[in-house]
């Protein structure tokens, strides 16, 4: 593998499309997705594997794309938030987020969506406790966790009553 210095050629499989990129080998997967491929759904926030705003799926698993190099993701299947509603039709999880008002400013939202996509694949009928453990790798400054939890509970294959209460509805 050519490790530079100077730009090297990188082959990626992103959202089922082969991409060939010429860039510095020090670029993270997040930088390549955003700046070279124009896939700006994933966001850079902490840039050190804490907040999850940059979450994408690599071979179906959640990965902080700020914390792996693009050059190291060459043999993998990469999925970004842009892959979920290619023709604009929201998938079930995205619809659940909309219905539960699980987004405010929305900057964390694509990361949460990708994280939840993988989480639900592993936990099709999550409990509140499962969600609180399994989704703790993503942070939201606006405080939309209650809506996110509601959205994920509503996705459960065995429906559970949400723990959300406002005049009869309890959240959290």
């Amino acid at each position: 593998m050519d490790l530079g210095p100077g730009p090297v050629s990188i082959q990626l499989n992103v959202n089922n499309q082969a991409q060939s990129i010429n860039c510095e080998p020090c670029l993270t997967l997040l930088q390549v997705l955003r700046e070279k491929l124009g896939l700006t759904g994933a966001k850079q926030v902490c840039d050190r594997a804490t907040c999850g705003a940059c979450t994408v799926l690599v071979n179906g698993k959640r990965v902080y794309s700020c914390s792996i190099l693009a050059i190291d993701a060459q043999d993998a299947k990469i999925e970004t938030v842009e892959s979920l509603a290619p023709d604009g039709t929201l998938d079930a999880l995205q619809q659940a987020f909309v219905a539960a008002d699980a987004s405010q400013c929305g900057y964390c939202t694509p990361g949460f969506i990708m994280s939840a996509t993988a989480f639900l694949a592993d936990n099709p009928s999550p409990t509140k406790e499962d969600i609180r453990k399994g989704m703790c790798g993503n942070l939201c400054r606006c405080g939309t966790y209650a809506g996110i939890e509601e959205a994920l509970l509503s996705m459960s294959k065995t429906p559970k009553t949400s723990a959300m209460a406002t005049e009869g509805r309890k959240r959290g």
Partner: peptide, 21 residues
């Protein structure tokens, strides 16, 4: 000056929230 040691509230920290308008 980061989000690692400047700790934000996470989804596991919120308990049960109840709002009455």
């Amino acid at each position: 000056p980061n989000v690692e040691f400047y700790r934000l509230c996470g989804i596991g920290d919120i308990g049960t929230l109840e709002v009455h308008l």
